[in-house]
Design a protein around this nucleic acid. Structure first.
Lengths: 116, 116
DNA sequence: TTAGTGTATGAGCAGTTGCTCAGATATTAG
DNA sequence: CTAATATCTGAGCAACTGCTCATACACTAA
């Protein structure tokens, strides 16, 4: 029995081809994964949910979350780089807000799913 | 000057209180974060998007993704535990499918966001 | 200018993640 | 039963994450 090549386990070449055609380009996939990563951490989720109510400064968020201001600042940087939040300076204080309503919508859709 | 207590940096006690009242219970937050984590990886995203087209077996997915069947299997286990996919046995082959339309909806909302 | 407050940042470390590899399990054929 | 196929699983490891700590920066008041 020839074991030289391709004891191919691909049962359904058609379905693989179909998936290939419908697939998003790798760059899009990576951007999507990065985007979801922003929501994949309890601290960041809490920040996003809090900012959905009202803009807040860093020490407000630190107090609300019960973590250090440094930790909040690191997470805010990440959220800023992903363009999920923006800030506004008033004297020495930076007020953060959500940039987009999609963000809350996404959380709502996810909530619907897990509450089943 | 007394440095003994509370050089409190909380500028806006009201807003913190407001955020506290609107906050989801910690258990919900953790479940949500777990849920989003499922989407926060390129391999899992590709799996979910492929299964949105049509059910596929493990070796189909491995061929489509260009990774080992073991790697696919590990990811499928995670997605199964999160109840995002389910399988159906036909002889020795397991066919995986999405369990819910919410899943694709979530990806669509996210796509809208990043394409701006 | 200096001191004080609010925030940002880099290094470093423990915990987590996503893979590989070897081996186990499930199902079918003979 | 044995052998073969499809899949699952645990251990182990490199890469990544989220935090702390120390420090730097930005703005304001004196």
């Amino acid at each position: 029995m020839p074991t030289d090549r391709c004891q191919c386990r691909i049962v359904h070449e058609q379905q693989v081809e179909k998936a290939r055609k419908a697939a998003l380009p790798p760059a899009e996939i990576d951007k999507l994964a990065q985007f979801f990563k922003a929501f994949a951490d309890p601290t960041r989720l809490k920040i996003l949910q809090a900012l959905h109510q009202e803009e807040m400064c860093v020490c407000d968020l630190a107090a609300f979350l019960g973590v250090s201001e440094s930790a909040v600042s690191h997470q805010l940087r990440m959220l800023r780089q992903m363009a999920l939040v923006a800030n506004r300076r008033e004297g020495p204080v930076l007020y953060y807000r959500l940039t987009d309503a999609h963000i809350s919508q996404l959380v709502l859709v996810a909530l619907e799913h897990i509450q089943e």
